[in-house]
Design a binder for these strands. Structure first.
Length: 479
RNA sequence: GGCCCGUUGGAGAAGCGGCUUAACUCACCAGCCUUUCACGCUGGCAUUCACGGGUUCGAAUCCCGUACGGGUCACCA
């Protein structure tokens, strides 16, 4: 049987990295087994819905390369794919459960419930379950919620795809609300109904849903249905080992933020796939197709996945290396453009900028800071550079010679022209290797680290170079 | 507090009872390459798997307990 899996976001905002990961693993699972990947919008919390949230989520899913087979945008035989459009369906089943005695109307107000919980807490009760005081309440002409009547002395056991056998007892679950006073179903109810109606075979979701599972299973049982296979993936945690909180500013958590910084979608896809899952082969740079080919749900990790930004950086850099120059140009161009670095520059200039930096670029937007680091007007010698200059004998004559030679060049020397110049300078001064290149590099860029020297000089332009050499030669001998 | 889950080097993370004197990757260090820088390549980097018991001829791997960490206990999803 071909699996049918779903990603069921609530449209409360942008695509979060944790949600993206849920979507991604479901997608991988579906594609790996030639199944169907469905996106269902769970918008039953009216207060938290953000209308633009749906479009944003769908757009970023697509940007990541995750294309649903069935969704509000793609249609399908199991629609509608938005819960608010399925209200009559839920009402039908709620009615049935009510009739069969699996559910009952609850007339308690939120104040009463709150007071009840407070009392339990004060009494030292640690379960804080609903008292069931409305279980036999006569019908009233008042607003009501519908509660699921949790069967007594029952054990729910399921074979979790990642955790193994997991068990819950009736005693640990209070009668929960399945339809709110406003007539809209709660998550656990709507989710169970839809998973059945949409013929979902496997549910891969975050571990934070594990305690919801028995609630959903009891709906399936009451209605005589067979629940899907569940799999609960470990949470993604931050440096402190805490669940990623959307309010945590220390980590960029939304796909959009990475997109805006010029991260590559295929790299992000690769990185996220490694969050709580490990490939069966010794590699870690994967294309989406390779990931689909190697995906195996049995390799989903049981311990929390640490969000490691350094790893992301590395993976992105590796994917950048895979790009041909045209593709890399497409990535970098907008950033150079917005930074105003392209004013009066031609295409060849863009090509050289990218060529010079491609080896050390870790994400698109970085091209701008790399550029500034090395080509800023006010260059400042790093401490390391000064120290090096002091350690080399006869630095000054060397730099003077080079500066002198510079005046002999034409207006737009090629990288090779600079290379020859360095060579000649070395010959004249009797210097070579590091002692030759490094002082020139420092004079030109202020730093001991940077792109290939001749290429860099070419980019910098002869006028800037002349200024910089003049500047450093004016400097005190001690630098 | 109840219930559920986890704990391997500076970091991520393999490992599923003997092939492990613990893979791979990042970071770091050293060397090579490059007349510089970077990329790349090669090598180094846990006598040890939170701790304490137990099972076994044999345990990071199984069992129990302790500690620590996390998740969840809503008319949120």
């Amino acid at each position: 049987m071909k699996p049918r899996v779903r990603y069921a976001p609530s449209p409360t905002g942008h695509l979060h990295i944790g949600n993206a990961r849920t979507a991604l693993f479901n997608y991988l699972f579906a594609k790996r087994h030639a199944g169907t990947f469905i996106v269902r919008i769970e918008d039953t919390d009216l207060a938290r819905n953000v209308e633009s949230g749906i479009a944003s989520q769908m757009a970023h899913l697509r940007w990541l390369g995750i294309e649903p087979d069935e969704s509000i945008d793609h249609g399908g035989a199991y629609g509608p794919y938005r819960q608010l459009e399925r209200l009559t369906l839920y009402a039908t089943y709620a009615e049935q459960l009510l009739k069969q005695g699996h559910a009952y109307k609850c007339y308690c107000t939120s104040e009463e419930l709150e007071a009840e919980r407070e009392a339990l807490k004060a009494a030292g009760d640690d379960k804080l379950h609903y008292s069931r005081k409305c279980l036999h309440a006569p019908a009233q002409d008042a607003p009501y919620a519908i509660r699921f009547k949790v069967p007594e002395n029952t054990t729910w056991t399921f074979d979790d795809m990642v955790k193994g056998t997991v068990t819950f007892q009736s005693d640990d679950i209070g009668d929960w609300v399945m339809v709110k006073q406003n007539g809209i179903p709660t998550y656990n109810f709507a989710c169970a109904i839809d998973d059945h109606l949409m013929a979902i075979t496997h549910v891969l979701r975050g571990e934070d849903h594990i305690t919801n599972t028995p609630k959903q299973m009891m709906v399936f049982e009451a209605l005589g249905w067979t629940p899907p296979v569940y799999g609960h993936m470990t949470l993604i945690v931050n440096e402190q080992g805490k669940k990623l909180s959307k309010r945590d500013g220390a980590i960029l958590q939304f796909i959009e933020q990475y997109k805006d910084l010029g991260y590559l979608p295929e790299a992000l896809f690769n990185f996220i796939a490694l969050l709580g899952w490990s490939p069966p082969i010794e590699a870690e740079i994967f294309t989406q197709d390779a990931l689909i080919e190697h995906f195996d749900a049995r390799r989903l990790s049981t311990s929390p996945a640490r969000f490691d930004r350094a790893k992301l950086t590395y993976i992105n850099q590796q994917h950048i290396k895979l790009l041909d120059s045209e593709a890399l140009k497409t990535v970098c161009h907008p950033f150079l453009q917005t930074a105003g670095l392209l004013e009066g520059k031609d295409d060849a200039f863009v090509d050289s900028v990218i060529d010079v930096f491609r080896d050390r670029l870790t994400y698109g937007a970085e091209i701008v800071s790399l550029y500034h680091d090395f080509f800023d007007e006010n260059l400042v010698l790093s401490a390391e550079s000064r120290e090096f200059l002091r350690s080399v004998e006869d630095v000054r004559p060397l730099l003077a010679t080079f500066a002198d030679k510079l005046t002999e060049l034409d207006e737009t020397p090629t990288p090779d022209a600079y290379k020859n110049l360095i060579k000649e300078t070395g010959k004249i001064c009797g210097m070579k290797g590091k002692n030759l290149f490094m002082p020139i590099r420092i004079a030109a860029s202020g730093s001991m680290h940077g792109p290939d020297l001749p290429k860099m000089m070419h980019l910098l332009g002869i006028e800037t170079l002349k200024q910089r050499f003049a500047h450093i030669l004016q400097d005190d001998l001690s630098f």
